[in-house]
Design a protein around this nucleic acid. Structure first.
Lengths: 200, 200
DNA sequence: GTCTATAACAGGATAGAC
DNA sequence: GTCTATCCTGTTATAGAC
């Protein structure tokens, strides 16, 4: 493991934990087990470090979905699989969605420009084409609006991760009840989404 | 308008815009058109100021829902009304949900203690009782899990606000397209929620 | 490449005059 | 209550030895 990788890993941990403003270069150096000076040798500024962390995490957040959507599979199964895999991924990386959203709220313009430059494309085109086909074949409700599908899916899946402390407080949950809830939702969310797009 | 009110208003604007870590006491003083010293006369520390802002905003975030849930109305109409009013409230205060969630992610323990001390109770009890009644009368699917209802509702309604920059980027939307989307969702979200709880 | 030391500055908080 | 001036700490960033 190179020094650069150690730094990037430490920076990711620190920034996902405390956000950009809350992150401390000192903590990052400690986590990476190097000194502060060396940080600036590899990454000139804190901002530079953020860009690296943001790009890495942003790509991850759509990768799972992309893979499932690209695969050959009946549409409803695809939705079911996407929900399950996306949920599982988030259970493994629970801080990721809040970090991305948080960063984009902090400075959307800069991040947009970066993503456009890196030609980052959220992976809907194949899916949206399938929706159109589904409408013609009568599988899908003709009134169904594709632009809302991603919002529904992300909202239903990601909200419990983004708002974990609030959710646990509201329902007076402990850690294991919360985990159980996340697991239960995989099936429930898929049902809701499929029900919504299915021809009535 | 008293000086204290001016400060609180300015602090709310600044903290909702930049978050606690990003907020600057200097900016708050400028917004309130007073000097920094006076800030500390009214609110000893930045943390004190945050507590005031957090409590004010946290109560708001459940007030609308509470009012609708307490009212006399058939269950499904109640859901429909709750979604519409909650959405309208968020359209008026779009930064509120992200701020609350952000703060709780930053320091959930402290905020939990504060809310427990202030006896803040998220307003579900009446609604959950109605769900039970509905199950017995056959109106509601017996497999429906009440603990997921609030999550579904909040996720579906709040996600577009919390993740606005990401949503706009993903779908290449401009401001007015985004507003249109928010309005369209009022009806769609209510349909999804009702469909999910209705006996099949 | 890696370290120590330090510069340079920003930010929250306080003191004290009025 | 309101202001100005200032302290003090913590933070990013740089210089320079090894």
């Amino acid at each position: 493991m190179t020094t650069e990788e150690k730094i990037l890993g430490a920076a990711e941990a620190e920034m996902l934990e405390r956000g950009y403003d809350g992150a401390r270069m000192r903590s990052i150096a400690e986590k990476a087990e190097i000194n502060k000076g060396l940080l600036h040798y590899y990454f000139k500024t804190k901002e530079t470090l953020l860009v690296a962390v943001f790009q890495k995490t942003f790509q991850q957040i759509f990768k799972t979905l992309d893979e499932v959507f690209q695969s050959e599979m009946p549409l409803f199964e695809k939705v079911e699989k996407a929900v399950a895999e996306y949920s599982d991924f988030m259970i493994k990386h629970p801080k990721l969605p809040f970090f991305i959203i948080s960063e984009m709220n902090r400075d959307a313009m800069k991040h947009n420009q970066r993503m456009l430059k890196a030609e980052v494309k959220p992976p809907f085109s194949t899916l949206f084409q399938e929706f159109e086909k589904g409408k013609k074949s009568g599988l899908i409700d003709p009134n169904f609006k594709p632009e809302h599908f991603m919002l529904n899916m992300m909202g239903l899946i990601l909200f419990p991760f983004i708002a974990r402390p609030m959710v646990m407080f509201m329902h007076k949950m402990n850690q294991s009840e919360y985990k159980q809830l996340l697991n239960d939702r995989k099936k429930l969310v898929a049902e809701i989404l499929i029900n919504d797009i299915k021809a009535k």
